[in-house]
Design a protein around this nucleic acid. Structure first.
Length: 450
RNA sequence: GUGGUUGUAGCUCAGUAGGUUAGAGCGCUAGUUUGUGGCACUAGAGGCCGUCGGUUCGAGCCCGAUCUUCCACCCCA
């Protein structure tokens, strides 16, 4: 049997884990600062819980878990006969791996509604799975870091979430653009163009503006059956970068007008808070069909990091009725998600990880002979008792080999023990960076390594 | 899911028109140095050339399938 990694999955080596931990810790610290509480949910959910929440495309990307036992016994015979995989799946798989953290959270809220205090703020850092075709920055198993609030329609939360995005990326030293739009504004555009029936087609089309340009969008919209007059109207409205100007094109009290009100309120809360990376982006649409109000997306700021090629590294928005399908209508929520893997890839590419994130033991203890090894272990235990991380090389003997071990592991100090050290109850501490070596008793050793 | 691309030593990659024992750099092991890593020098180990099948006297090289990588579309973190 040849060892293999499944498509779109990765192993994490110790250094990789240290760097990921740095990202997770940074995000978590900010989440907690805004009073979000951590929860966890199972990797698998009832397939029923997951299907139909992410649109048709999303359903195709769900990993399904084959039922245990003699599943063929209960399989849909006609679907099997007709080779209808889609239909057959329902009868042989009742569970699936979660596709994101938001839908399981909605299920969680409904299930535990009597134990929660609303508005409920939770964060969750767990892996999700998608049967997507892998690419750079796109995996089949990846971690999401989500913060959501349910049980309030206040736009204060939109402002908080924007602040969280801002603070996390500032801490990570990564220049980003936080884009904000509102589904109601998009609906207003559809209304103004008289194509509310083609709302979804319109959003998919205009989302590509910066990628395929105005002509490309015109073509795309036409192909989706939107008349040329409507297309002209849409293009005209998209050209208005300032949301305050855009309001003149919407009737007072209309959906689009309300959407602009909401955006204005979010900017109002943030005021002079110094968040310069928030930008109204009228073409931002986002695919997930459950969003109803403000929507967010975070991308690497190309003006600060021109060579980075990476899709969005975060996204989110407001959903007015997520829990509705679980029998709890009228509960509004808003949330954001960080794409930890993509953030990792970008930080790595830009060399933005501080060197101290790599967690190394302070010293490796090594001995020339068996008797010295006993003293080396004893000394190491004394140092460990002070809360200092150290390693003891397990075999006495060739110091060259042991030094190389310490060097390869990236450890700064070698604590060497031989006859003389045992006799004097000292260790010879060598700094592998500078090459300097001193003889220290335990007390001096501890204060040096602390 | 559609189209394309990639796979040779632990890693990064050469491999000329199909022709004997498949190469390099880095890394690894040992020694030069029996109380000292990094640097240098010397020697050595390590490859069913992604997998399965086909064409051929003969395949790393040609053909097919499959898996994987990356790219575009779709969608997305």
């Amino acid at each position: 049997m040849k060892p293999q990694l499944l498509k779109g999955t990765r192993d994490f080596l110790p250094d990789h884990i240290s760097k990921r931990k740095y990202i997770f810790d940074t995000i978590e610290t900010v989440f907690r600062k805004y009073a979000f509480a951590r929860i966890e949910t199972p990797a698998m959910e009832a397939l029923e819980t997951l299907t139909g929440k992410y649109g048709e495309e999303g359903d195709k990307l769900l990993f399904k878990i084959l039922n245990n036992g003699n599943f063929l016994d209960k399989a849909d015979a006609s679907a099997l006969e007709a080779k209808d995989s889609q239909k057959l799946a329902l009868s042989i798989a009742k569970r699936g791996l979660r596709y994101d953290l938001t839908v399981p959270f909605a299920r969680f809220v409904v299930l535990h509604q009597n134990e929660l205090v609303f508005p409920f703020k939770r964060y969750q850092i767990q892996p999700v799975w998608r049967a997507d075709r892998p690419q750079k920055g796109r995996y089949q198993e990846f971690y999401q870091c989500d913060a959501d609030v349910v049980g309030s329609e206040s736009l204060l939360y939109e402002a908080e979430l924007v602040s969280i995005y801002h603070e996390v990326f500032a801490k990570l030293g990564l220049g980003v653009e936080i884009k904000i739009n509102n589904r109601k504004v998009l609906f207003g555009i559809a209304e103004a163009a008289g194509i509310t029936d083609k709302f979804v087609d319109m959003t998919v089309g205009i989302d590509k503006l910066d990628k395929i340009g105005e002509e490309g969008v015109r073509k795309e919209l036409a192909e989706r059956g939107i008349g040329s007059e409507s297309v002209d109207k849409i293009i005209t409205l998209l050209a208005i970068a300032d949301y305050k100007q855009l309001r003149e094109h919407f009737a007072e009290g209309s959906e689009g007008w309300k959407g602009l009100q909401e955006i204005e309120q979010v900017f109002g809360f943030l005021g002079d808070s110094g968040i310069k990376d928030l930008k109204f982006e009228i073409t931002l649409a986002r695919g997930l069909s459950y969003y109803t109000g403000c929507i967010f997306e975070v991308a690497v700021d190309k003006s600060k990091h021109p060579n980075v090629v990476m899709g969005s590294i975060g996204g989110g928005g407001r959903y007015d009725n997520l829990t509705g399908s679980f029998g709890m209508p009228g509960l509004s929520g808003v949330g954001i998600s960080f794409g930890a893997e993509r953030i990792y890839d970008v930080l790595e590419e830009l060399n933005l990880f501080p060197t101290e994130v790599l967690e190394k033991p302070r010293a490796v203890f090594m001995a020339f002979d068996e008797a010295s090894l006993v003293w080396a272990f004893k000394a190491a235990q004394a140092v460990r008792a002070e809360g200092i991380d150290v390693e003891v090389y397990p075999d006495a003997g060739k110091i060259k080999k042991q030094m190389k071990f310490a060097n390869d592991k990236g450890v700064q100090y070698a604590a060497i023990v031989g006859d003389q050290e045992v006799a004097n109850k000292t260790v010879a501490l060598k700094d592998l960076d500078t090459g300097e070596q001193v003889s220290l008793d335990l007390e001096a050793l501890i204060s040096k390594l602390k």
